[in-house]
């Protein structure tokens, strides 16, 4: 149970097949992706402060907002800098996870 498991070979192969860049060759867990948001936006997207709450929003809405931040189409203080840190695929995955929040 404590044996160290090597990095998933399958994911590496997938990365080569799909031609993703080295940094995104293997997929980050969808759960960890969405947990990147809760530090500021609150547990399950229930924000107790100035950041907008994210719960109850459809995946397409969240995805569009993040893509707009990433591409400079939406005014931001910090979300542009953060959204640029995720690939388009990750943003799609993240949006689906966030949409599950109630």
């Amino acid at each position: 149970m404590s044996k160290r498991i090597p990095a998933a070979v399958a994911a590496t192969v997938m990365g080569v097949v799909f031609g993703m860049s080295a940094a995104h060759a293997q997929s980050v867990s969808p759960q960890l992706l969405s947990l990147s948001c809760v530090g500021c936006h609150g547990s399950s997207g229930h924000s107790p402060g100035a950041m907008p709450s994210l719960y109850g929003r459809p995946a397409e809405t969240v995805q569009q907002m993040l893509m707009d931040f990433k591409n400079g189409r939406r005014p931001a203080t910090i979300m542009d800098r953060i959204a640029k840190g995720f690939s388009d695929e990750e943003i799609a995955t993240l949006a689906k996870e966030v949409a599950r929040w109630k």
């Binding site: 809760v38 530090g39 500021c40 936006h41 609150g42 547990s43 924000s47 107790p48 402060g49 100035a50 950041m51 203080t77 910090i78």
Partner: peptide, 17 residues
């Protein structure tokens, strides 16, 4: 000022989390 409010929001959110 917006970033100052976000600082407060971050703290409230993270303490909650």
């Amino acid at each position: 000022t917006s970033e100052a409010r976000h600082a407060e929001g971050w703290y409230a959110s993270m303490a909650q989390e």
